[in-house]
Design a protein around this nucleic acid. Structure first.
Lengths: 297, 297
DNA sequence: AACATTATAATCAAAAGTAATAATAAAGAT
DNA sequence: ATCTTTATTATTACTTTTGATTATAATGTT
């Protein structure tokens, strides 16, 4: 929470490395060095023994570490109790989100949010972009999540996460272990795409146009109605597909799917949340602040 | 210690006033306002009810206050334990100081220092400026305190406190309740001064010269060998004396003595500490840091 | 020597502080 | 009652201080 310096110390103490700690904290190593130096000056003694390629806690450092843990425990209790005060005040929060976001993005965030605000009830509704916007406008939900900006004057749009659409193949696919292919080589790869009208498909086609590549040149084998269907299909086929990287994170991690980079082609878009202009309920802003902190936008 | 924001909150909570807290913390009221606003944003709720001329803690504020007390308790434990580690490492600290500083300045500081570092032994020796410098140079003390800069190349001088020499009279003196007199009126006031050769006397005479006032024009009744002697003399006489304001703080507070301002005359000097160039033992720097923090230089 | 890691220095960005002043509510005066 | 006066917090523009970054040096390991 507060007291960043002490957090830096803890991080260095637990990783036993200035540079690793810097990574964890999303700051640079010299910044860490300076924080530690200041703390050492404050306590008039070294907290770490620098021995060339590695560091170790001094006695003073060990002592401080044990104390800093207790201090942060106190902080956490404070945060928890302050949060539960909020819960009391208000009811629940209704959210509408388009499919990809509702299925692959929000679940993780909502779980963490629930951990922090256990008493706040959240209703997550799953619908297409158009309906998300309508639901926000007629106030049947307070917050909407969509996969591409449109231009409705009554609504405030804000990007919160960058998405990338990538060529994905199964681990058994011939391209699985190739790092990269050229755009022209792509024409030989049988592809599965989302159905016409899908937002994801639109983005893909626009990117191809931008590279002066005709859609007809692509070897489109099949069109399916959802990312999940496509994923199932890929598993036993010889085809590839363009999917939001966020929908296949788990499979990539497990090594079930592989990404095939395409030279000079990058398909990016933003995910947005929307709310009514000027309509900011308390729970609403609590949730959005949480989101902001989580995605760091 | 760390976490200034929380300290600001506590201060506001205990004084129940933004501006009073600002005074206590030696910052301005807008700074306090902003800190509190940021904390309220952090917790998504108001910590104080502003009702015009006064403020009160909200429920959330009360809750946070109870937590912040626990947090600071943890901090204090940490500080205490870290300090006692220092004590172990090293022996004792020898200090030499000239009379005024040894009698009126250091006792208070040393008391506080001892409270924080209970195991560090300090030996305070009382001698004149010249001998203080010699003692530092031949290493029989680590640190010296003197009342005016000289120019010894082997020594590092640093000012740590501004002193002012003021005209002081007893409460029964006719000038006691006058705010101010003119320089010329000063000639009618019988004066007691320190003996020739005293540092304080030198400073006074130099200030008079600077105002083109001849020493002979002053009505010097008596010369005495110490501030304490002068103070005793003032108590039952009709004379005034020029003394370092630091030597009469107690009497001023109790209303036994009064300061008489003299138009266009201000006699200021600095108190210095000295150490050997480049000679900085650990305890030495611990003590100096404490001093720096205490006097804020 | 090559590598990995921390330290240092110059520069830039962000946060906190200040001064001046507005806004607001309570208390006192007419 | 209503109009100052007073005491207090809020706001704004600006300055200072602190913290972070980039690039590079220094140092100990392999």
């Amino acid at each position: 929470m507060f007291d960043f310096k002490l957090q830096v110390f803890q991080s260095v103490a637990s990783r036993l490395s200035f540079s690793k700690a810097a990574e964890d904290l999303h700051i640079t190593q010299p910044a860490v060095t300076r924080h530690i130096r200041q703390m050492e000056a404050h306590f008039n003694q070294k907290l770490f023994k620098r021995k060339g390629n590695s560091i170790a806690l001094t006695e003073a450092g060990k002592l401080l570490l044990s104390h800093s843990k207790l201090i942060f425990q106190q902080y956490e209790k404070a945060e928890f109790d302050m949060n539960s005060l909020i819960d009391k005040n208000e009811g629940s929060l209704r959210i509408a989100a388009s499919t990809t976001i509702a299925q692959y993005i929000l679940p993780e965030v909502l779980a963490k949010f629930h951990q922090k605000f256990p008493k706040i009830k959240i209703h997550l509704l799953n619908m297409n972009t158009e309906k998300v916007e309508k639901s926000v406008m007629n106030n049947s939900v307070e917050l909407g999540f969509i996969e591409g900006q449109s231009k409705n004057r009554e609504l405030a749009y804000q990007a919160f996460l960058e998405d990338e659409i990538v060529l994905v193949v199964d681990k058994s696919h011939p391209l699985a272990k190739k790092n990269q292919i050229s755009i022209s080589a792509l024409q030989d790869v049988p592809l599965v795409l989302r159905e016409k009208g899908s937002g994801t498909r639109e983005v893909i086609l626009k990117a191809f146009q931008h590279e002066n590549l005709k859609v007809e040149a692509l070897n489109i084998e099949l069109e399916l109605g959802s990312s999940e269907s496509i994923k199932s299909y890929l598993a036993n086929g010889h085809s590839g597909s363009f999917l939001s990287i966020n929908t296949v994170l788990k499979e990539l991690k497990h090594g079930d799917f592989y990404i095939v980079d395409i030279e000079e082609l990058q398909i990016k878009r933003d995910f947005f949340f929307i709310q009514q202009q000027g309509h900011h309920s308390k729970l609403n802003s609590v949730f959005l602040k949480f989101l902001q902190h989580h995605y760091n936008f």
